[in-house]
Design a protein around this nucleic acid. Structure first.
Lengths: 340, 340
DNA sequence: TTGTAGGCGTTATCAA
DNA sequence: TTGATAACGCCTACAA
């Protein structure tokens, strides 16, 4: 369907070597030849076949982005950032959703391997870290959040820890003594450090933490708001019930808030609320929702910069620093209620 | 770095042709040869080089997905659906963000063209429809929402029209006579039909519609909530001001809601509210937010199925029907206030 | 500064 | 059922 390099060469009255040199910008070419090739290429709508070029040069100009769950909007800024910076340097972006599944991840990595991607960027923790380590040792440039943060001097724990400490400290100060950390089945596994940090931090300020794991069926928590409301009602209204609900994720937060509204739990009079992950809706909600934010975008920028550098692309500007997570106090946190 | 077909052939004691036949599943191969090749491939970690394969077969096994704005979460389910169905049939997905810009789109399409993608899926309307039409006429399978819906017997207008009529009808019934349709600079251009439909529908039920376009600077409306609040306050509190605010997009909605809260505008007592695009937060919000939903996921499924069929991949099951948009009544719409 | 020619890894043809 | 071999389109020594 498309023109090839020989047709362009013929049209321009030069050899294929000259066309190649002009199109890639590598190697010498007279002004005359350059002009002839350019116009011939435009005339024929010539686009160099990157399969052929990859085969010859052993560079695919493709970066693979591995996302643990494409349904989760938190990964969107990540994907966006990588795509923007990659395309600026002529790289295309292949996206692969692993659906939090080891087997799917393996298949996807094989697919990316078959495409001979020049680098791999993980938007979240890989399901099979060993496999990834092996690829990395085989010479493939790879960026993965946890390892990356560690190398950059921000191991996960320290990045999140201060924000979690801030949150727990504030909660204790305004009188809370019992906290429930709510998550869904799938997510617990993906971020076990969080729970450990929260647990430790709570204990140190005299708050008793308690994990609440919601069932993860088809439809998940979304399917059963009335049921969820009942669960939360009995949880919160018990005499020794928690006075704070802490949502494990941005996705879970609105479901919990809705269920609390349905259950007639007033925020923050009956129970305070906070969640991981900020959003415009969290701000708009009344009372506005306290959050712990991670600057995922900055992480993506730093990871992409590191990858591009390994690929030998000069990225101008100073290296981007990673900001630790931040605890944002908003109206959804109030003084602990005194239960009758 | 990776093993090639010759090494596998040597290891398995067969020819490269046999390896190729076994790995691709095309062509005959004895059980004995198959087993030998399989184990040799596993041993060497062999992944066929798809650049070479593409070059030879003229099929890249890549589907390009063009997204007008990767920052907008509405495109996420779309991307997810295409990715899932594509990978099920061995296709990889290349994602390209055009940032609503003709020039960027052109560059991205060139990049995808250079990769010789087997098909193109547009998650939103292309910035340069003529260019896309040209590609399509050149034989590239392309799916694009508007054209696709039209072919499927659901031209955009009729898909959205009944929901818009429902909304306007309901608003008129509960006494509204003046409506403001709020959008941001960029989005108006991307969906001018909406405004036309809304305008016509409002007029037909005796509501006076009025477009409100918010400035689109860096940071956009997000930067100036106080300013936005002032704007909305003077808009709504005028004696002839609108009694309904209709948000053009899911992204804009939380900003407007926050600004209304800041401005002390009560929903729905002072002013009713509705938006395009449903979400868990819209449901959780109090009062919960009335919406017009589009089943983008179903659109993605149908578009992908059509593409896969054009690529000669048998998609089992009956063709998916496209549901028209739906107007969902929730608490954010109430009776029109009588202004003093 | 330009052209010639060989080969990147794979698949399809064809003869055995 | 198998194997030898000629492309696929491009890049890059190397020679001119």
């Amino acid at each position: 369907v498309t023109a090839d390099i020989r047709q362009v060469a013929a049209e321009a009255g030069v050899s294929t070597a000259t066309v190649s040199r002009v199109m890639s910008g590598r190697g010498p070419a007279s002004a005359r030849a350059t002009a002839a090739v350019r116009s011939a290429a435009r005339l024929l709508g010539y686009l160099p076949n990157s399969s052929a070029s990859s085969l010859r040069t052993d560079r695919s100009m493709i970066i693979g982005v591995v996302v643990p769950n494409l349904a989760n909007p938190v990964f969107l800024p990540f994907l966006r950032t990588v795509e923007h910076r990659a395309q600026r340097h002529g790289y295309a972006v292949l996206v692969a959703d692993t659906q939090h599944d080891v087997e799917v991840e393996r298949r996807q990595l094989d697919r990316l391997g078959a495409q001979r991607v020049d680098a791999l960027v993980f938007a979240g923790r890989p399901a099979d870290p060993d496999h990834v380590r092996r690829l990395s040792e085989a010479g493939l440039p790879i960026a993965e959040p946890v390892t990356f943060a560690r190398q950059a001097g921000y191991p996960f724990s320290s990045r999140a820890a201060s924000a979690i400490d801030d949150a727990c400290g504030h909660l204790a100060t305004v009188g809370h003594r019992r906290l429930a950390y709510v998550s869904r089945g799938g997510s617990v596994r993906s971020a076990p450090e969080r729970w450990r940090l929260i647990e430790a931090s709570c204990r140190s300020v005299g708050i008793e933490p308690r994990p609440v794991v919601l069932g993860t069926g088809p439809g998940g928590a979304a399917a059963g708001v009335p049921k969820l409301a009942a669960t939360l009602a009995s949880l919160v209204k018990a005499s020794e019930g928690p006075t704070v609900l802490w949502s494990n994720s941005q996705v879970l937060a609105p479901l919990l808030l809705e269920a609390m509204a349905v259950a007639g739990i007033d925020i923050p009079a009956d129970c305070s609320f906070l969640t991981f992950g900020d959003s415009a809706w969290a701000v708009a909600f009344r009372p506005s929702v306290s959050v712990i934010t991670t600057d995922l975008d900055a992480v993506a920028v730093a990871m992409t910069a590191s990858i591009l550098q390994q690929l030998g692309v000069p990225e101008p500007g100073p290296p981007v620093g990673l900001r630790p997570d931040v605890f944002v106090i908003r109206g959804s946190i109030g003084a602990a209620p005194t239960r009758v």
